[in-house]
């Protein structure tokens, strides 16, 4: 019972009750310990992104139970879920979901806007993170002008700005070359060593087999393989 995030019998059905109903997750039981790097591995469409959304309180399961730090969150209304999310998670999305028309720096700063920190404090931290990810020259560029790999690194910096306890990253290395991937894994190891929890999905065998990864969870057709 020391797990940080626990899923019990979690099922997620899209378009429930309609002719195109789709079971994306089926009866998933999973316990994730704090302070570890866990990788979800599985073929395309196996439900990795969906599982990360449910873990990270971005979506509620159709049935089953999700606990975060001992608190059952699967039946909380969105207004409360938003609070849990803000206190706990930092996300890197598969499609980045950066906000176009804004600079890389502003995108990185956004999650910290409601926290009450000053603009300069947040800007300093954003510059630091962008620097660590090799983007110091692009902080003022509008995000839609950046390459895929650059956008991905902006998304990573954005996930880290609020120093979350849990970092959730969906295919974070998909657009990075091997040097940057290695660098990114180094950053994750650093986060883990600070006591943070990292959950990510990846196709990339280099990631799954990397030394820093503590645990690999395999998904197939919405089910966790033993």
């Amino acid at each position: 019972m020391s797990a940080l995030i626990e899923l019990a019998g979690v099922t997620k059905v899209f378009h429930e009750g309609q002719h195109n109903a789709l079971v994306a997750l089926c009866d998933v039981d999973l316990a994730l310990e704090a302070g570890r790097i866990t990788v979800l591995q599985g073929p395309s469409g196996s439900g990795k992104s969906t599982l990360l959304s449910v873990l990270g309180c971005l979506a509620r399961p159709t049935s089953g139970r999700v606990r975060v730090a001992g608190e059952v969150v699967s039946n909380l209304p969105e207004a409360f879920l938003a609070d849990v999310r803000r206190r706990t998670f930092g996300f890197v999305f598969q499609q980045f979901h950066l906000i176009g028309g804004l600079s890389a720096r502003t995108n990185v700063m956004l999650p910290a806007y409601p926290t009450g920190r000053t603009h300069s404090e947040i800007a300093r931290r954003a510059a630091e993170l962008l620097g660590q990810l090799g983007l110091e020259k692009l902080t003022d560029a509008r995000v839609e002008w950046l390459s895929g790999g650059e956008q991905q690194r902006v998304a990573i910096a954005r996930a880290l700005i609020n120093d979350p306890r849990v970092v959730i990253a969906d295919e974070p290395t998909a657009n990075l070359d091997s040097a940057l991937s290695a660098e990114f894994l180094g950053i994750l190891a650093g986060l883990r060593d600070e006591g943070r929890t990292v959950i990510m999905s990846s196709h990339d065998p280099r990631v799954c087999e990397a030394a820093v990864v503590d645990r690999v969870v395999r998904l197939l057709d919405g089910k966790v393989e033993a």
Binding site: A79, A82, G90, F93, L110, P111, Y113, P114
Partner: peptide, 18 residues
């Protein structure tokens, strides 16, 4: 979409409404 993103990256409901 933008509101969805803001909430996903850590904005609470109050921040969005404000």
């Amino acid at each position: 979409r933008e509101i969805g993103i803001l909430k996903a990256i850590g904005w609470d409901t109050r921040a969005v409404l404000t």
